[in-house]
Design a protein around this nucleic acid. Structure first.
Length: 583
RNA sequence: GCACCCGUAGCUUAACUGGAUAAAGCAUCUGACUACGGAUCAGAAGACUUGGGGUUCGAAUCCCUACGGGUGUACCA
C-alpha cells in the first residue's frame, strides 16, 4: 500500500519519493475508512494544502487501483476505504496457503546465543526470561526466512565452580544426585551456598584474631583451597579434572531437565573450558598491526576513548586472557564454524558496555562480520518485594517456579470444573500447558529492554492479557469447527463485511507484517501483543456473529474462524507456547 | 564523578518508530448464561504521558534541563 501511494505521488507531482516516507496507519475507529495516509509530508511536493493534497491523492488512487473503494479527507489525513473484495481475496489466499506465517528463505544465516549459564548454581527466573527470549527470537527469525543456529555458551570453568568443588570435597561426604535424590544443578548449588557460608565464618574468625577484612578474605583456608583447585585444574591435574567433570555432569543433567520443561533447545553448545584460551592470537595480531598497544608492564590494551569509551584490557601482563579476550576468540570461532550473516547475543543489560566494546574491537580489527553482531539486551526481572538477590535468598528458582505455575493452573482449572471429562493423564498435560503458557506469556509480552516486574499472583491469572486466554480462544474455535465440520467452500463474495468481520480480517492480514517487524527488532513482545489483540477481536466477532446458525455467511465465518485458529496456533509456536485442543 | 537504560490510569503493560480525541488487561462499579464453550462479552469510571523549556503543521516518542529509579564504569566471567 505504501508502494502504490508513493507511486501515485510520483505520478501526480513528478517527484520521486521513497516508499518509506509514506506513513500508513490503521484508521482510528472514530473515522470512516480502513487505512490512513498522512499527507503532511507530501505538501512539499504538491505545493498545496494538506487537504487539497489528500483530495488529489485520494482521487488518483481510487481511479487507478480497484482495491481502493473510496476515501475521505480530514485535515492532513487521507482515509482510504479498501474494498471488501480485496479483503475477501486476502482471506482466500491465506486459507489456501499451507504455510501462513512463514516467509520464504532469505538466504541469510543467523546465530542466536542464549541461556549461557554458569555451572555453579541452578537456573533462576532471570535465566527463564533469557531462555524464552532466545528461543522465541530464534523461532521468529526462522519464520522471517533466516536459517537459524541456536547456540549456548556454557561458563563451566573458573573460580565459581571451584568453590562448589572445594565445599563438596570438604563437607560432601560423597553425596551425589542419586544418593540424595536432588537434581544435579541443585546439589552443586547447595555446595556453592555452603561454601559462601563457611567462607564467611572463616573470615569472621580471622578478623577476630586481628586481621583486616581484606587480609582475612585472602587468607581464609576455604578460599585458598578453591584457588589451589583452579590452579590444579589449569595444570590439568587428573583428580581435580575428574571431579570437575563429574560435578559439571550433574549440573548438565539438571539443566537438561529444566530446558526440556521450558521447551527450549540448542543446535550447538560451546564450553568456555574449550574457548577461554582463544582470542589470544587475535590480540597478538592486533598488537602487531598497531590496533592495540602495550603498557610498560607488558599488558595489552585498546584505546576507545575516541568513541566515548575508555581503555580496555585485553591481555594481562603475564599473557593470560581476560573475559574480553575470550569473547573475541569465541566470536571468531562461531564465525569460522558457520559463516553467519548475523550473530545475536541474548545477554542481560548489565553487559551493555561489554558488548559495545566487543563490537568496536572487532570492527577495528577489520572483521567484516563485526557489523552483524547484535546484543539483544534485556532488563532484569524484579519481584514485588524488590530485586532478586542470591545473597539474601530472594532468588526465584526456575524449577520451583515451573512447579508452582502448574500447580496453580491445576487449582484454577479444577475450580472452574473445566477438565472434568478428561482422563487423568490428559488432565495433567493440560495443567502443564496452561501453567507454562501463563509463565511464558507473562515474561514475553513485555518489551525485552525494559525491566520486568514479576508478580507471581498476577502471572498465573488465566483471564485478561494472558497466555491461557489466548489458548482458550483457540480451543473454543477448534470446538466450533468440529461441530460445524470442515468449511467446504465459502459463499460467493458478493456480500458486505460488517464491522466485526472487517476488524478481524484486517488483523489477520497484519500477521506477516508483525513477524517481520519483530524479527527486525528481535522482539517477541510484538507477536505476543498481536496475539492478544487477535484473540480479543475474535471473541468479539464470535459473540456478535452467530456462526453455526447463520445462513447467509456461515461458510465465510467458519473460514475466518479456521484461519484465526491457524494464525493463533502459529503465533504461539513462535513464542514457544503450546496449544491445547481442549481446555 | 562519568556513561548508558527506564519513568505512561491505583497496579501491570500498548501506542505501527514524529500523526488524529494516548490503547488494553488487572482491580472497582453496572449489565448479559433455555445459544456455537461465561477461562466470555457489553458498559461505567479511571491519564495535564515525572516537572520545566525547546524543535514543527503535529511530541509519550527527537533535543536541552531538573528530579526519581536502575545498571555499568574490575588484571571476575
Amino acid at each position: 500500500m505504501a508502494r502504490i501511494t508513493a507511486k501515485s505521488i510520483n505520478a501526480l507531482y513528478g517527484e520521486t519519493i521513497p516508499d518509506s516516507s509514506v506513513t500508513i496507519n490503521e484508521t482510528r475507529k472514530e473515522f470512516k475508512g480502513d487505512l490512513t495516509v498522512v499527507t503532511f509530508p507530501f505538501t512539499r511536493s504538491s505545493k498545496k494544502s494538506p487537504e487539497e493534497t489528500g483530495g488529489e491523492l485520494g482521487t488518483y488512487l481510487q481511479e487507478h487501483y480497484e482495491e481502493i473503494a473510496g476515501f475521505s479527507v480530514v485535515k492532513g489525513f487521507l482515509n482510504l476505504v479498501i474494498s471488501d473484495r480485496y479483503w475477501l481475496g486476502r482471506i482466500k489466499a491465506m486459507t489456501a496457503s499451507t504455510d501462513v506465517g512463514s516467509q520464504p528463505p532469505n538466504g541469510q544465516k543467523v546465530m542466536v546465543e542464549y541461556s549461557s549459564p554458569n555451572t555453579n548454581k541452578p537456573l533462576h527466573l532471570g535465566h527463564i526470561r533469557n531462555n524464552l527470549l532466545g528461543y522465541s527470537v530464534s523461532r521468529i527469525l526462522e519464520a522471517a526466512g533466516y536459517e537459524v543456529i541456536k547456540s549456548n555458551l556454557i561458563n563451566d570453568r573458573g573460580i565459581h565452580i571451584c568453590k562448589s568443588m572445594a565445599a563438596w570435597m570438604k563437607f560432601g561426604e560423597g553425596e551425589t544426585p542419586a544418593s540424595s535424590g536432588m537434581k544435579g544443578d541443585h546439589l552443586v548449588g547447595k555446595y556453592y551456598v555452603l561454601f559462601d557460608k563457611k567462607y564467611k565464618e572463616q573470615i569472621g574468625k580471622l578478623m577476630e584474631v586481628g586481621m583486616t577484612e581484606d587480609e582475612a578474605k585472602f587468607a581464609a583456608p576455604l578460599m585458598q583451597e578453591a584457588r589451589q583447585m583452579l590452579r590444579m585444574w589449569e595444570e590439568g591435574d587428573p583428580e581435580v579434572t575428574n571431579l570437575w567433570k563429574t560435578m559439571n555432569g550433574w549440573v548438565y543433567d539438571g539443566f537438561e531437565v529444566t530446558y526440556r520443561r521450558l521447551g527450549v533447545d540448542f543446535d550447538k553448545v560451546y564450553y568456555e573450558s574449550d574457548t577461554y584460551l582463544l582470542g589470544k592470537d587475535i590480540v597478538l595480531d592486533g598488537l602487531e598491526k598497531g590496533t592495540f598497544f602495550r603498557k610498560p608492564d607488558g599488558s595489552a590494551w585498546i584505546d576507545l576513548s575516541s568513541e566515548g569509551l575508555d581503555e580496555k584490557l585485553l591481555l594481562r601482563a603475564d599473557g593470560t586472557s581476560v573475559y574480553m579476550t575470550q569473547d573475541i576468540g569465541t566470536a571468531q570461532l562461531k564465525y569460522d564454524d558457520y559463516q553467519m550473516d548475523k550473530s545475536v547475543y541474548v545477554v542481560g543489560n548489565e553487559q551493555d558496555y561489554h558488548f559495545k566494546v566487543l563490537s568496536s574491537i572487532l570492527e577495528k580489527l577489520g572483521k567484516p562480520w563485526a557489523s552483524g553482531l547484535y546484543h539483544l539486551s534485556y532488563g532484569m526481572v524484579d519481584l514485588p518485594s524488590g530485586k532478586m538477590k542470591s545473597r539474601e535468598g530472594t532468588v526465584v528458582d526456575a524449577d520451583d517456579l515451573i512447579d508452582e505455575m502448574i500447580a496453580k493452573a491445576r487449582h484454577n482449572t479444577l475450580e472452574l470444573g473445566k477438565a472434568d471429562q478428561l482422563p487423568e493423564t490428559e488432565k495433567e498435560e493440560l495443567f502443564r500447558k496452561v501453567g507454562m503458557a501463563a509463565l511464558k506469556y507473562y515474561l514475553l509480552r513485555v518489551d525485552p529492554k525494559k525491566r520486568l516486574l514479576f508478580d507471581p499472583n498476577e502471572s498465573i491469572d488465566l483471564q485478561g492479557h494472558t497466555g491461557p486466554f489466548i489458548q482458550y480462544t483457540y480451543a473454543r474455535i477448534r470446538s466450533v469447527l468440529e461441530k460445524a465440520g470442515i468449511a467446504t467452500e465459502s459463499d460467493a463474495p458478493g456480500f458486505l463485511l460488517n464491522a466485526d468481520e472487517k476488524n478481524l480480517v484486517i488483523l489477520l492480514n497484519k500477521f506477516e507484517t508483525t513477524i517481520i517487524e519483530s524479527a527486525a527488532d528481535y522482539n517477541p513482545a510484538v507477536v505476543a501483543n498481536y496475539l492478544f489483540d487477535l484473540a480479543k477481536t475474535y471473541n468479539k466477532f464470535y459473540h456478535d456473529n452467530p456462526i453455526l446458525k447463520a445462513e447467509d455467511k456461515q461458510q465465510f465465518r467458519l473460514e475466518l474462524s479456521e484461519i484465526t485458529a491457524r494464525i493463533i496456533s502459529r503465533g504461539m509456536e513462535l513464542l514457544g507456547i503450546e496449544v491445547p485442543e481442549q481446555m
